[in-house]
Protein backbone atom coordinates (compact mmCIF):
# COMPACT_ATOMS: atom_id res chain seq x y z
CA UNK A 1 0.00 0.00 0.00
CA UNK A 2 1.54 3.31 -1.04
CA UNK A 3 1.26 6.10 1.48
CA UNK A 4 -0.60 9.11 0.10
CA UNK A 5 0.90 12.56 0.72
CA UNK A 6 -0.34 15.10 3.24
CA UNK A 7 -2.11 14.69 6.55
CA UNK A 8 -4.87 12.08 6.41
CA UNK A 9 -7.61 14.26 7.86
CA UNK A 10 -7.58 17.99 8.37
CA UNK A 11 -10.78 19.60 9.61
CA UNK A 12 -10.83 23.38 9.82
CA UNK A 13 -13.65 25.52 11.22
CA UNK A 14 -16.26 22.87 10.47
CA UNK A 15 -19.88 23.87 11.11
CA UNK A 16 -22.96 21.74 10.48
CA UNK A 17 -26.42 23.27 10.61
CA UNK A 18 -29.60 21.27 10.16
CA UNK A 19 -32.64 23.16 8.92
CA UNK A 20 -32.80 26.90 8.49
CA UNK A 21 -34.41 30.00 9.95
CA UNK A 22 -35.72 29.93 13.51
CA UNK A 23 -35.75 26.11 13.63
CA UNK A 24 -32.12 25.77 12.61
CA UNK A 25 -30.04 23.42 14.73
CA UNK A 26 -26.34 24.20 14.88
CA UNK A 27 -25.06 20.73 15.61
CA UNK A 28 -21.36 21.48 15.09
CA UNK A 29 -19.70 24.88 15.46
CA UNK A 30 -16.23 25.73 14.17
CA UNK A 31 -14.61 22.45 15.09
CA UNK A 32 -11.08 21.85 13.87
CA UNK A 33 -8.41 19.19 14.31
CA UNK A 34 -5.54 17.58 12.40
CA UNK A 35 -4.73 13.88 12.34
CA UNK A 36 -1.27 12.43 11.79
CA UNK A 37 -0.75 9.33 9.71
CA UNK A 38 -1.12 6.11 11.62
CA UNK A 39 -2.57 7.92 14.58
CA UNK A 40 -5.74 7.17 16.46
CA UNK A 41 -7.65 10.31 17.33
CA UNK A 42 -10.63 10.44 19.65
CA UNK A 43 -13.67 12.68 19.94
CA UNK A 44 -15.35 12.50 23.32
CA UNK A 45 -18.57 14.07 24.47
CA UNK A 46 -21.99 13.46 25.89
CA UNK A 47 -25.02 12.58 23.77
CA UNK A 48 -25.96 15.44 21.47
CA UNK A 49 -22.55 17.07 21.62
CA UNK A 50 -22.20 16.77 17.84
CA UNK A 51 -19.37 14.24 17.87
CA UNK A 52 -21.06 11.74 15.55
CA UNK A 53 -22.16 14.58 13.29
CA UNK A 54 -18.50 15.47 12.70
CA UNK A 55 -17.92 11.95 11.34
CA UNK A 56 -21.05 12.10 9.23
CA UNK A 57 -20.00 15.48 7.82
CA UNK A 58 -16.59 14.11 6.87
CA UNK A 59 -18.10 11.28 4.84
CA UNK A 60 -20.86 13.36 3.33
CA UNK A 61 -23.86 12.07 5.29
CA UNK A 62 -24.37 15.45 6.99
CA UNK A 63 -24.33 18.86 5.24
CA UNK A 64 -21.27 21.06 5.79
CA UNK A 65 -22.42 24.65 6.24
CA UNK A 66 -18.99 26.18 6.81
CA UNK A 67 -15.35 25.20 7.08
CA UNK A 68 -13.19 22.81 5.18
CA UNK A 69 -12.38 19.12 5.26
CA UNK A 70 -9.17 17.87 3.67
CA UNK A 71 -8.39 14.23 3.11
CA UNK A 72 -4.74 13.48 2.36
CA UNK A 73 -4.19 17.17 1.80
CA UNK A 74 -6.92 17.70 -0.80
CA UNK A 75 -10.31 19.28 -0.04
CA UNK A 76 -13.19 16.80 -0.32
CA UNK A 77 -15.67 17.15 -3.12
CA UNK A 78 -19.43 17.16 -2.64
CA UNK A 79 -20.83 14.68 -3.50
CA UNK A 80 -17.93 12.48 -2.48
CA UNK A 81 -16.28 10.57 -5.32
CA UNK A 82 -15.30 6.92 -5.59
CA UNK A 83 -11.69 7.69 -4.69
CA UNK A 84 -12.86 9.15 -1.38
CA UNK A 85 -14.78 5.99 -0.47
CA UNK A 86 -11.72 3.86 -1.19
CA UNK A 87 -9.68 5.98 1.16
CA UNK A 88 -12.18 6.60 3.97
CA UNK A 89 -14.57 4.05 5.42
CA UNK A 90 -16.82 4.07 8.46
CA UNK A 91 -17.94 1.59 11.10
CA UNK A 92 -21.31 2.38 12.58
CA UNK A 93 -22.47 2.30 16.16
CA UNK A 94 -25.24 -0.26 16.02
CA UNK A 95 -24.30 -3.51 14.27
CA UNK A 96 -27.96 -4.53 14.39
CA UNK A 97 -28.88 -1.58 12.15
CA UNK A 98 -25.82 -1.33 9.93
CA UNK A 99 -26.17 -4.71 8.20
CA UNK A 100 -28.95 -5.28 5.66
CA UNK A 101 -31.30 -7.86 7.22
CA UNK A 102 -31.83 -9.75 3.94
CA UNK A 103 -28.22 -9.89 2.74
CA UNK A 104 -25.75 -12.63 3.60
CA UNK A 105 -22.28 -11.77 4.88
CA UNK A 106 -21.03 -12.81 1.46
CA UNK A 107 -23.25 -10.27 -0.28
CA UNK A 108 -22.31 -7.55 2.22
CA UNK A 109 -18.62 -8.09 1.49
CA UNK A 110 -18.82 -8.68 -2.25
CA UNK A 111 -20.93 -5.62 -3.06
CA UNK A 112 -18.25 -2.97 -2.39
CA UNK A 113 -15.82 -5.05 -4.46
CA UNK A 114 -18.31 -5.11 -7.32
CA UNK A 115 -18.95 -1.36 -7.07
CA UNK A 116 -15.26 -0.51 -7.30
CA UNK A 117 -14.45 -3.19 -9.84
CA UNK A 118 -12.02 -5.18 -7.72
CA UNK A 119 -10.88 -8.50 -9.11
CA UNK A 120 -10.02 -11.60 -7.15
CA UNK A 121 -13.30 -11.40 -5.22
CA UNK A 122 -13.21 -14.88 -3.66
CA UNK A 123 -9.78 -14.49 -2.12
CA UNK A 124 -10.49 -10.99 -0.86
CA UNK A 125 -13.68 -12.05 0.93
CA UNK A 126 -11.98 -15.04 2.56
CA UNK A 127 -9.08 -12.81 3.60
CA UNK A 128 -11.39 -10.10 4.97
CA UNK A 129 -13.26 -12.64 7.09
CA UNK A 130 -10.03 -14.16 8.35
CA UNK A 131 -8.67 -10.70 9.22
CA UNK A 132 -11.55 -10.00 11.59
CA UNK A 133 -11.40 -13.45 13.14
CA UNK A 134 -14.41 -14.98 11.42
CA UNK A 135 -14.03 -18.33 9.71
CA UNK A 136 -15.38 -19.56 6.43
CA UNK A 137 -18.49 -20.87 8.23
CA UNK A 138 -19.78 -17.33 8.61
CA UNK A 139 -19.60 -16.37 4.98
CA UNK A 140 -23.10 -17.38 3.93
CA UNK A 141 -24.94 -16.48 7.10
CA UNK A 142 -27.62 -13.86 7.39
CA UNK A 143 -27.23 -11.15 10.06
CA UNK A 144 -29.94 -12.74 12.21
CA UNK A 145 -27.72 -15.82 12.50
CA UNK A 146 -24.91 -13.74 14.04
CA UNK A 147 -24.33 -12.32 17.51
CA UNK A 148 -23.76 -8.61 18.09
CA UNK A 149 -19.99 -8.99 18.27
CA UNK A 150 -19.91 -11.11 15.12
CA UNK A 151 -22.04 -8.55 13.32
CA UNK A 152 -19.66 -5.77 14.30
CA UNK A 153 -16.76 -7.86 13.00
CA UNK A 154 -18.60 -8.20 9.69
CA UNK A 155 -19.11 -4.43 9.65
CA UNK A 156 -15.39 -3.92 10.25
CA UNK A 157 -14.56 -6.41 7.50
CA UNK A 158 -16.87 -4.52 5.16
CA UNK A 159 -15.16 -1.23 5.98
CA UNK A 160 -11.70 -2.73 5.44
CA UNK A 161 -12.38 -4.70 2.28
CA UNK A 162 -11.80 -1.63 0.08
CA UNK A 163 -8.40 -1.25 1.76
CA UNK A 164 -8.95 2.29 3.02
CA UNK A 165 -6.21 4.20 4.83
CA UNK A 166 -8.61 6.01 7.16
CA UNK A 167 -11.32 4.45 9.30
CA UNK A 168 -14.05 6.49 10.96
CA UNK A 169 -15.36 4.67 14.02
CA UNK A 170 -18.69 5.86 15.39
CA UNK A 171 -18.98 4.37 18.89
CA UNK A 172 -17.98 0.97 17.50
CA UNK A 173 -18.46 -0.86 20.78
CA UNK A 174 -21.21 0.96 22.66
CA UNK A 175 -23.90 -1.44 21.44
CA UNK A 176 -21.91 -4.47 22.62
CA UNK A 177 -21.63 -5.96 26.07
CA UNK A 178 -18.45 -5.45 28.07
CA UNK A 179 -16.60 -8.69 27.29
CA UNK A 180 -17.24 -8.33 23.55
CA UNK A 181 -16.22 -4.66 23.70
CA UNK A 182 -12.70 -5.56 24.71
CA UNK A 183 -12.44 -8.18 21.94
CA UNK A 184 -13.56 -5.74 19.25
CA UNK A 185 -11.30 -2.95 20.55
CA UNK A 186 -8.30 -5.28 20.57
CA UNK A 187 -9.16 -6.38 17.04
CA UNK A 188 -9.32 -2.76 15.90
CA UNK A 189 -6.00 -2.02 17.61
CA UNK A 190 -4.31 -4.99 15.97
CA UNK A 191 -5.71 -4.11 12.54
CA UNK A 192 -4.46 -0.55 12.86
CA UNK A 193 -0.94 -1.65 13.63
CA UNK A 194 -0.91 -4.31 10.92
CA UNK A 195 -2.31 -2.09 8.17
CA UNK A 196 -0.98 1.31 9.26
CA UNK A 197 -4.51 2.72 9.44
CA UNK A 198 -5.52 6.12 10.74
CA UNK A 199 -8.48 6.05 13.11
CA UNK A 200 -10.94 8.77 14.00
CA UNK A 201 -12.87 7.34 16.93
CA UNK A 202 -15.99 8.83 18.46
CA UNK A 203 -17.10 7.68 21.87
CA UNK A 204 -18.79 8.80 25.04
CA UNK A 205 -16.67 6.32 26.94
CA UNK A 206 -13.44 7.86 28.23
CA UNK A 207 -12.02 4.43 29.06
CA UNK A 208 -12.41 3.30 25.44
CA UNK A 209 -10.80 6.47 24.13
CA UNK A 210 -7.96 6.29 26.66
CA UNK A 211 -7.29 2.73 25.55
CA UNK A 212 -7.44 3.42 21.82
CA UNK A 213 -6.32 6.99 21.13
CA UNK A 214 -3.10 8.96 21.39
CA UNK A 215 -4.90 12.29 21.29
CA UNK A 216 -8.48 13.42 21.68
CA UNK A 217 -10.74 16.43 21.73
CA UNK A 218 -13.65 16.92 24.10
CA UNK A 219 -16.83 18.29 22.56
CA UNK A 220 -19.86 19.87 24.14
CA UNK A 221 -22.89 21.52 22.49
CA UNK A 222 -21.20 21.31 19.10
CA UNK A 223 -18.02 23.07 20.21
CA UNK A 224 -14.55 21.90 21.09
CA UNK A 225 -13.92 22.20 24.81
CA UNK A 226 -10.26 21.22 24.76
CA UNK A 227 -7.64 18.95 23.25
CA UNK A 228 -5.81 16.41 25.39
CA UNK A 229 -3.17 13.77 24.92
CA UNK A 230 -3.45 10.27 26.28
CA UNK A 231 -0.90 11.19 28.97
CA UNK A 232 -3.03 14.15 30.00
CA UNK A 233 -6.04 11.89 30.25
CA UNK A 234 -4.26 9.24 32.31
CA UNK A 235 -2.82 11.88 34.66
CA UNK A 236 -6.23 13.63 34.76
CA UNK A 237 -4.62 16.88 33.66
CA UNK A 238 -7.69 18.71 32.36
CA UNK A 239 -7.75 22.45 31.97
CA UNK A 240 -11.50 22.87 31.61
CA UNK A 241 -14.10 22.24 34.31
CA UNK A 242 -16.30 20.29 31.92
CA UNK A 243 -13.52 17.82 31.14
CA UNK A 244 -12.85 17.38 34.84
CA UNK A 245 -16.54 16.61 35.35
CA UNK A 246 -16.36 14.01 32.60
CA UNK A 247 -13.28 12.46 34.18
CA UNK A 248 -14.99 12.30 37.54
CA UNK A 249 -18.11 10.83 36.00
CA UNK A 250 -16.10 8.15 34.19
CA UNK A 251 -14.69 6.92 37.49
CA UNK A 252 -18.23 5.95 38.44
CA UNK A 253 -19.84 6.22 41.85
CA UNK A 254 -17.37 6.69 44.66
CA UNK A 255 -18.61 6.71 48.22
CA UNK A 256 -17.55 9.80 50.16
CA UNK A 257 -15.57 8.81 53.22
CA UNK A 258 -17.63 9.51 56.30
Amino acid sequence: MSTPPGTPIEVDGLSVTFGSGAGALRAVRRVGFVLNRGESFGIVGESGSGKSTVLRAICGLAPVSAGQIRIDGAPVRTPRDAAFYRRVQMVFQDPYASLHPRHTVDRVLSEPLAIHGFGDVEARIEQALADVGLGHGFRFRFPHQLSGGQRQRVAIARALILEPSILLLDEPTSALDASIQAEVLNLLDALRRRRDLTYLLVSHDLAVVAHMCERLIVMRNGETVEELSRADLRARRARQDYTRDLLTASRGFVREPA
Binding site: G60, Y85, D94
Partner: peptide
Protein backbone atom coordinates in the same frame (compact mmCIF):
# COMPACT_ATOMS: atom_id res chain seq x y z
CA UNK B 1 -27.49 2.75 8.99
CA UNK B 2 -27.18 -0.04 6.45
CA UNK B 3 -28.30 2.34 3.69
CA UNK B 4 -25.77 4.92 4.91
CA UNK B 5 -23.16 2.14 4.92
CA UNK B 6 -23.73 1.15 1.31
CA UNK B 7 -23.74 4.82 0.29
CA UNK B 8 -20.33 5.14 1.92
CA UNK B 9 -19.20 2.23 -0.18
CA UNK B 10 -19.89 4.40 -3.20
CA UNK B 11 -23.04 2.68 -4.44
CA UNK B 12 -25.20 4.63 -6.88
CA UNK B 13 -28.84 5.44 -6.26
CA UNK B 14 -30.07 2.76 -8.66
CA UNK B 15 -28.07 0.03 -6.92
CA UNK B 16 -29.25 1.18 -3.51
CA UNK B 17 -32.91 1.37 -4.51
CA UNK B 18 -32.93 -1.90 -6.42
CA UNK B 19 -30.61 -3.97 -4.25
CA UNK B 20 -31.25 -2.60 -0.79
Amino acid sequence: DHIAAIRLQGAGSLRIIWGH
